[in-house]
Design a protein around this nucleic acid. Structure first.
Lengths: 191, 191
DNA sequence: ACTATAACGGAGGCACCCCTCCGGTATCAA
DNA sequence: TTGATACCGGAGGGGTGCCTCCGTTATAGT
């Protein structure tokens, strides 16, 4: 389903370089950045990223003139995947579809701190990512509400902030995180 | 009630200096630090704090040899107040007592980022603060559970992490924060 | 008033980060 | 093979923060 999607697109036009050596560096930088951002959040040191990639700092700046460019290149793809996951879940019954997607959402957020931060920072370029996530989640949530299985006095914004808040803080272990999340979602259910 | 409490004490023994000028600086540092920590979180720059206090960096280090010493001096007092609030709420009916205290808890956490961080960091000296908070909240929560008004399969640790998670992330406004918190607490209620 | 000394404050060494600039190098088309 | 050039890397200047050290100053007891 939806192979030729017209979903609001997250366009990043940082072009992969032409020359072979340049392409190698470009890719190394991307994966080093993915690693560093996941580990230290969006404030990870750019010099550290260049080091991890085994590349000079100059090369980093040539490919990604600003920190935002690098962040975008790394994360917009992943958020895109999240949006796709929402479409895939659409076949399930309303409540399962929603929780399935949220589970996926949580899995992402837990490891990729930047996604979480993108929900919590006031930044233009993150705005776009946030909107894409909301657009993806809204149909799922509205379906649940239409089925009378979730309280009507709640928005997707409420829901995602709730889930991301619970995901963004430390728990003793995964088991506790799931349990607490489950409890909070119980509050979302219509009674 | 409990004027001569034997509650686990948060002891900080950084002694206020003897000489008049030293005492002035000590106090100025404390309030500058309170301000800076609230504003920028526990990572606020020590040099900035000294500047705000109108004092040399050396003076800061003389009074508070480590960042932890300063943090402790600032926050343990406030956490102590939080614990007192729990005792005061004890007169109310179980569920109200708990939510009254949690409301207080939220009010603190929202403005004092360090308290929130103290729940989310792995640090020895915060451990102590965390334990004090837990000790204060446990009676309230257990009372609610005993009254059958909260689900039994949840601990005070679960509850506080849930609340602090929801408090620690941004909401559009206070109203949304309260609404979402209310929804999550609905999930805590026994059905 | 005078002095012993507690307390001051900021210069300075070290570390890290950001970003620019440019001499050197690897690539690729001819 | 070779030359034009796209691309490299890191030195270096500017900024901030941490913490120590020590010459200078204010205080308090006599």
């Amino acid at each position: 389903m939806a192979t030729e999607t017209t979903r609001p697109v997250l366009r990043v036009d940082i072009k992969r370089p032409q020359r072979a050596d340049a392409r190698r560096n470009f890719d190394a930088l991307l994966s080093a950045a993915r690693e560093a951002f996941a580990e230290k959040g969006v404030d990870a040191s750019l010099e550290d990223i260049a080091r991890r990639a085994g590349v000079g700092i100059g090369t980093l700046y040539r490919n990604f003139p600003t920190r935002q460019d690098l962040l975008s290149a790394v994360y917009f793809g992943e958020i895109e995947e999240l949006c796709l996951a929402a479409e895939e879940a659409a076949d399930l019954p309303p409540w399962e579809a929603l929780t399935t997607w949220l589970r996926r959402f949580v899995a992402y957020v837990a490891t990729k701190r930047a996604i979480w931060e993108s929900l919590n920072r006031e930044s233009d370029s993150f705005q776009e990512a946030r909107e894409a996530m909301y657009a993806a989640g809204t149909p799922l949530f509205e379906r649940v509400q239409a089925a009378g299985e979730a309280r009507a006095d709640m928005s997707i914004d409420d829901l995602l902030r709730m889930v991301s808040g619970l995901t963004g803080c430390n728990f003793v272990d995964e088991e506790q995180r799931d349990r607490v999340l489950q409890i909070a979602l119980d509050g979302v259910r219509a009674r």
